[in-house]
Simulated assay, not measured.
Amino acid sequence: MKKRQHRLKFETVSVLDNFLECIFPPRCFVCDRLLETADIRRQRNVHAACRKKLYPVVQPYCYHCGSPLADTETEYCQNCRKHRSFVAEGRSLFVYRGAVQKSMYRFKYANRRRYARFLAEEAMQRWENWMREKRIEAIVPVPMYSKKERYRGYNQAALFGRALSEKMDIPCIPRLMIRVKDTRPQKELNGRERENNVKNAFQSSDNVVKYKRILIVDDIYTTGSTVEAVAERLKEAGAEQVYVLTACIGRGF
Rank of each mutant, 00 (worst) to 15 (best):
K2V: 13
L8M: 09
C22Y: 04
R27D: 03
L34W: 05
T37K: 14
A38E: 12
R41Q: 12
H47T: 04
A48N: 01
K52C: 02
Y55E: 13
V57C: 02
V57T: 03
P60N: 04
C62L: 06
Y63S: 06
G66S: 09
C77K: 02
N79I: 08
C80H: 04
R84S: 11
S85Y: 12
R91P: 00
R91M: 09
V95I: 15
S103I: 09
Y105E: 09
Y109C: 09
F118H: 08
R126I: 13
W127T: 01
E128T: 04
E133F: 10
E137G: 01
I139K: 00
M144G: 03
Y145A: 01
S146L: 11
K147N: 00
Y151L: 13
A157F: 06
A158Q: 08
F160G: 05
R162W: 10
I170A: 00
P171F: 12
I178F: 04
V180M: 03
K181N: 02
D182F: 01
R194H: 03
E195F: 09
E195R: 14
N196I: 08
N197L: 05
V198C: 02
V198E: 01
K199G: 00
K199Y: 07
A201E: 03
F202H: 09
S205M: 13
N207C: 05
N207I: 12
V208C: 03
L215G: 02
I216W: 01
V217W: 05
Y221K: 08
G224K: 13
S225H: 02
T226C: 02
A231L: 08
A231G: 05
E232M: 08
E232W: 10
G238V: 10
E240R: 15
V242C: 07
V242P: 07
Y243S: 02
V244S: 12
R251C: 06
R251V: 12
F253V: 08
